[in-house]
Design a protein around this nucleic acid. Structure first.
Length: 564
DNA sequence: GCCGTTTTCGGCCCGACTGTTTTCAGTCG
C-alpha cells in the first residue's frame, strides 16, 4: 500500500461517482482530496491523520481508513455494482461527458465502446432527446479515433508539432504576436493537444488562413474567439486550439490558457477572496476591468512573484517561496556529454567551443566506458589518450574549466567498468546503467548501491533509464535510491534530453536530493536541451543550492577537488 | 464531501462553443 494507491482509489471513486451523476461538488471533493495527498511531501507511513489535511474531512478520511485497513473500499464496490467499468473508457471520447454517457447507458443499455458504435451505426443514438444526427456522427468518429490515435504525445513530439505550427504563424498576415500556451508551454512530459494565443484585429481572416494550411486535417470548432483544428504530420494527428485575442487582454489570456487548470482555480480563488474576479479578459475589480502589460504585472497585482509556466501545476506554487527556484540562467556548466571517442558527433575541441558559446564556466567530457560496445565505449588506453588530449588543449581555453571524466557502465552484477586505479586518474566520474533492464528491483538496487558506494562516483546518470512515451525504465525503489544518494553523497542526475527527463519532476519534488542537470549531448546542438532539464527542475520546485552545476567556477572546482 | 473574520448552511472558478433547442444543457479547458 502506497500513497499512490490511495490517490488512485480516490480518483477512481470520483470518476465512478461522476458517471453515476453524483453531485459534481462531491466528485470534486474526492479529486481535491487526492490532490492534497499528492502534494503532501510525507510518505504514507509518516501520515498519522489524513483528516488534518486541508481538503480531507470525515467522509474521505473514513474511506481512506477502510482502504488502508482492509485493502478494500465499500463505496467503490457499491459504485462498481451500478456503473459498468467500460463506461469509464467512454469519458475519453470528446464531446461525451457523464450526463450523455449516463443517458446512453440508461436509454440504450450500451456498456461498451463497440456497443455504442453499433448503436450509432444503427441510428439509434440520434433518436434520443438531446441527441441529434451530428452528435451521433461525432461519437461514431470519436470511437474510431480513440481506437487508432494515441491519447497523449511525449514532449519531444509536441515540440516538433509546435515548430511546424509556429513556422506557419510566422507567415500569416494579420497576426501581431503569438505564443504557445497550455501544457506545452508548461513543458509537461505528455500533452494531449497544443494551445496558441494569437493577437490580431482580424480574427476572421487569420482563422481562414489557418484552416487552409495544408496540414490541417479537420476543423473541430470555429467561433469568433476560438479555433480548434486537427493537424497531421507523418503518421501523427493532434488537436490544436487557437485563441484570438486583443492587445489589451493578451497577457491575461496567455496566463489563462497556459493553465494548469488547478493553477487557474487557485488564482481565481485568490481573486475572489479579495472581492475580485479573474477571467481571460482581465481582472474585474469594483466593476472595472484591469488588464496588464505582462504576466509579471498580473502576478504582482495579487502580490505574487512571477511564477514561471513550468511551475504552474498544483496551485501550491502560489504559497511557496519561488524566488530561489533554479532557472536556465543559473546553470554554469554541463557535466555530461559525449565526443567522437565514443558515440558523439563532435571532437573534444568542438564540444569545448560549443560550451564556450553557451557561456559556461566549466564542462566535463564523459564518454562511454569499454563495456558499452554499441556506443564504442573507451577502454583504459583510449581513455588515457583522451585525458592527454584534454590536458593538452586546456591552456588554449582559459575561459572554461575542462574536466576529464567518464560515463562508466554499472555492469549486470553490480561491478563497475573501470578499476579504482583508473577512476582516480579522472576529475569526475558518472556511473550509469545501460544493460539488463529486465532485472528485479533487488538486482537493480544492488547495482545502483554499488555505484553510489564507490568513492569516485560523483553522480548517477539518468537513474531510471526510462524513455518518455517509450520504455518504462528499470525497477527502481525511489525511497531507497533517495536515501542511498544522501548517505553516500552521490548526486542524482536530471537528464535534460527531452526523451528522458530522468529523474522526473515528480520524483525529485520534495525529495531533498542533491541534483545535477545535464544534456548528455551527443551533438553540439544537444547542449540546447538544458532548457528541458531546468524546466523539469522547476516542475520539481528545486532550488538553486540543490543543483551542483549552478555552483560558481571556483565553488565547483573546490567541490570536484574535495571528492566525496 | 469540504469549509468557515458573512462559521453549521450554502456556497464551491469562469467563459467559449456546439448542438439541439427556441432559451439552454453539456462539454471543454
Amino acid at each position: 500500500m502506497t500513497k499512490k494507491d490511495i490517490i488512485n482509489l480516490l480518483e477512481t471513486i470520483a470518476t465512478y461517482m461522476e458517471l453515476s451523476l453524483e453531485n459534481p461538488f462531491k466528485v470534486s471533493a474526492y479529486r481535491k482530496a487526492a490532490a492534497a495527498i499528492e502534494r503532501d511531501p510525507r510518505a504514507l507511513s509518516e501520515i498519522e491523520d489524513f483528516s488534518e489535511m486541508k481538503g480531507i474531512g470525515k467522509g474521505v478520511n473514513d474511506v481512506i481508513t477502510e482502504y488502508v485497513e482492509t485493502g478494500r473500499s465499500s463505496i467503490l464496490d457499491d459504485l462498481k455494482e451500478t456503473v459498468p467499468v467500460s463506461l469509464v473508457q467512454m469519458l475519453k471520447l470528446p464531446t461525451l461527458g457523464p450526463k450523455k454517457i449516463a443517458k446512453l447507458h440508461k436509454e440504450l443499455g450500451v456498456v461498451t465502446l463497440e456497443g455504442l458504435k453499433a448503436e450509432c451505426v444503427a441510428g439509434n443514438v440520434s433518436e434520443l432527446s438531446g441527441f441529434g444526427k451530428k452528435t451521433e456522427d461525432n461519437i461514431s468518429k470519436a470511437i474510431d479515433e480513440l481506437l487508432t490515435r494515441p491519447e497523449t504525445y511525449p514532449i519531444e513530439k509536441i515540440q516538433t508539432f509546435r515548430k511546424i505550427i509556429e513556422a506557419s504563424l510566422d507567415e500569416i498576415t494579420g497576426i501581431d504576436r503569438y505564443d504557445i500556451a497550455g501544457s506545452a508551454r508548461r513543458y509537461k512530459e505528455m500533452s494531449k493537444d497544443l494551445d496558441f494565443i494569437v493577437q490580431t484585429t482580424d480574427a476572421h481572416s487569420v482563422a481562414e488562413a489557418l484552416v487552409n494550411l495544408p496540414f490541417v486535417k479537420d476543423v473541430v470548432a470555429r467561433g469568433e474567439r476560438k479555433l480548434s483544428v486537427v493537424i497531421a504530420h507523418d503518421l501523427d494527428q493532434i488537436g490544436v486550439d487557437i485563441r484570438f485575442v486583443t492587445a489589451e487582454a493578451y497577457h491575461t489570456t496567455l496566463h489563462h490558457f497556459t493553465g494548469s487548470k488547478e493553477h487557474n482555480v487557485k488564482m481565481r480563488q485568490i481573486a475572489k477572496s479579495r472581492g475580485e474576479k479573474v477571467s481571460e479578459y482581465g481582472v474585474e475589480k469594483e466593476g472595472e476591468l484591469l488588464t496588464f502589460e505582462s504576466e509579471s504585472d498580473f502576478f504582482s497585482h495579487f502580490d505574487l512573484p512571477y511564477i514561471a509556466p513550468t511551475m504552474r501545476e498544483t496551485g501550491e506554487e502560489t504559497d511557496i517561496e519561488v524566488s530561489d527556484i533554479v532557472t536556465l540562467d543559473d546553470i554554469r556548466g554541463d557535466l555530461h556529454m559525449h565526443t567522437v571517442y565514443s558515440d558523439g558527433a563532435h571532437s573534444v575541441r568542438e564540444m569545448v567551443e560549443a560550451c564556450i558559446d553557451k557561456g559556461y564556466d566549466y564542462m566535463i567530457i564523459t564518454d562511454h566506458s569499454k563495456s558499452l560496445r554499441v556506443a564504442n565505449g573507451l577502454d583504459e588506453d583510449r581513455l588515457w589518450q583522451q585525458i592527454e588530449e584534454i590536458k593538452k588543449i586546456r591552456p588554449e581555453y582559459p575561459g572554461i574549466d575542462i574536466y576529464t571524466g567518464t560515463e562508466m557502465d554499472i555492469l549486470k552484477d553490480g561491478s563497475l567498468d573501470f578499476s579504482e586505479d583508473m577512476l582516480k586518474e579522472l576529475d569526475y566520474v558518472i556511473a550509469a546503467i545501460h544493460s539488463s533492464f529486465q532485472q528485479t528491483e533487488d538486482e537493480i538496487m544492488h547495482r545502483l548501491r554499488s555505484a553510489c558506494e564507490n568513492p569516485y562516483v560523483r553522480h548517477i546518470a539518468h537513474p531510471t533509464g526510462r524513455l518518455i512515451g517509450g520504455r518504462a525504465g528499470y525497477a527502481v525503489d525511489f525511497e531507497k535510491l533517495i536515501q542511498m544518494s544522501k548517505d553516500t553523497r552521490t548526486v542524482m542526475e536530471v537528464n535534460a534530453n527531452p526523451r528522458r527527463l530522468d529523474l522526473s519532476s515528480s520524483v525529485i519534488r520534495n525529495s531533498g536530493l542533491m541534483l545535477t542537470v545535464n544534456t548528455d549531448a551527443h551533438h553540439t546542438q544537444h547542449l540546447e536541451f538544458m532548457e528541458y532539464g531546468t524546466a523539469t527542475l522547476q516542475k520539481g520546485l528545486i532550488e538553486k543550492h540543490q543543483v551542483i552545476n549552478t555552483f560558481s567556477r571556483e565553488d565547483f572546482r573546490e567541490w570536484v577537488k574535495k571528492g566525496k
